[in-house]
Design a binder for these strands. Structure first.
Length: 348
DNA sequence: CTGTGTGTTGAG
DNA sequence: TCAACACACAGG
């Protein structure tokens, strides 16, 4: 990987997280102009940065693609916002395709470790195509956790114990590390209205999200991608509105509101992985933790998957595959009582 | 219109 | 086997 020192220097500028004050502007459009106030002005446009990770290639829009080769042909593993995320996708794939001794970007799975062993088993019990499919659809985490659960579940604590740890992201090899809670926001009527935008309290925005041009410069904002409790990816445009002096999540937000059936008063929580991928997480909680609503004379719990899970239905997949239809599913489950089938995510 | 991911090439 | 590069075209 011989990239010019100039490019590398500029590339470092892209980091935002806990790093102090570094301004970055990554224009999302195809023009790929890179405006850098600090001195990398030369790099102008063109020349995508090379990745330091194996199996990872940069995309024209600043994102990262993951790919693996086999039998003279490339197999696409998906595109990711974070370079490290793409690298992990590659790691998963390469360990399935080439086994234990495969060269990985990060620490390879180790038989000695219980968690790793479970993942290795998981990998081996699925075809390459299935693994690739999960990576591309971002369902790998879920499937893996589901697998782990069905294996050593009875071994430890009861179902009620802390079986939702996986969903909460407490432990996940691929995601790496844990989650740091950033902040919560109780959504306002306009946050869930037709404005297609969520106002991020200024204080939180400036503390946890990438810096935005609050000046007059053309601030198109940036695309932020989040993962919800179901492992589903959500991408929103994040920008600053000079008109209202507000930081907002716009494009993509209304879809989230719709699928999560957000209502004023509900709480949206933001988290971020403490791992190297800095993956952001977003989730919705019903106003006071759990909300009960009535359908056909039956009380139904509505709220975060975790809460629902505790309610007795021990299968997050049911609630995660199609968030949009949660309510319907619940109705179905309740009415058919004990005789419901486990709905796999194959429907995807 | 945006951005993915495929076609393709040449280096290793 | 791999990444770099260009861009057709799928999806919204």
């Amino acid at each position: 990987m011989a990239t010019s020192s100039i490019e590398e220097a500029c590339e470092e500028t892209r980091e935002w997280p806990p790093v102090a004050s570094k301004s970055l502007q990554r224009v999302a459009s195809g023009g790929s102009e890179v405006i850098d106030p600090e001195g990398c002005v030369e790099a102008e446009f063109r020349k995508l940065p090379s990745s330091k990770y194996k199996g990872v290639v940069s995309q024209p829009n600043g994102r990262w693609g993951a790919q693996i080769y086999e039998k003279h042909q490339r197999i696409w593993l998906g595109t990711f916002n974070e370079e490290a995320q793409a690298a992990r996708a590659y790691d998963v794939a390469v360990q399935r395709f080439r086994g234990r001794d495969a060269v990985t970007n990060f620490k390879p799975l180790n038989d000695a470790d219980d968690e790793d062993a479970a993942e290795l088993f998981f990998l081996d019990s699925h075809t390459k195509h299935e693994i690739v499919d999960m990576l591309r659809k971002r369902t790998y985490h879920n499937e893996l956790q589901q697998s782990k659960r069905s294996i050593g579940a009875d071994n430890k604590k009861g179902i009620a114990g802390r079986s939702n740890a996986a969903v909460a992201g407490a432990t996940d090899p691929l995601a790496g590390a844990q989650r740091q809670h950033l902040f919560d926001k109780a959504v306002t009527p306009s946050d869930v209205g037709k404005l297609n935008r969520l106002v991020i309290p200024k204080q939180n925005a400036e503390k946890y999200f990438p810096p935005q041009n609050t000046g007059g410069a053309a601030s198109k904002g940036v695309l932020l991608s989040f993962e919800d409790g179901c492992g589903k990816e959500w991408r929103f445009r994040y920008s600053y509105w000079n008109s209202s002096h507000s930081y907002v999540l716009t494009r993509g937000w209304s879809r989230f509101v719709k699928e999560k059936r957000l209502e004023a008063g509900d709480v949206v929580t933001f988290q971020r992985s403490t791992g190297t991928d800095k993956q952001l997480f977003i989730d919705a909680k019903a106003r006071s933790g759990v909300q009960v609503l009535r359908l056909f004379g039956v009380n139904i719990v509505r709220g975060p998957a975790a809460a629902i899970g505790e309610g007795g239905v021990d299968d997050n997949a049911v609630f995660c595959t199609t968030g949009k239809k949660n309510r319907d599913h619940i109705t179905e489950l309740v009415s058919s009582q004990g005789m419901f089938k486990k709905q796999r995510t194959e429907a995807l």
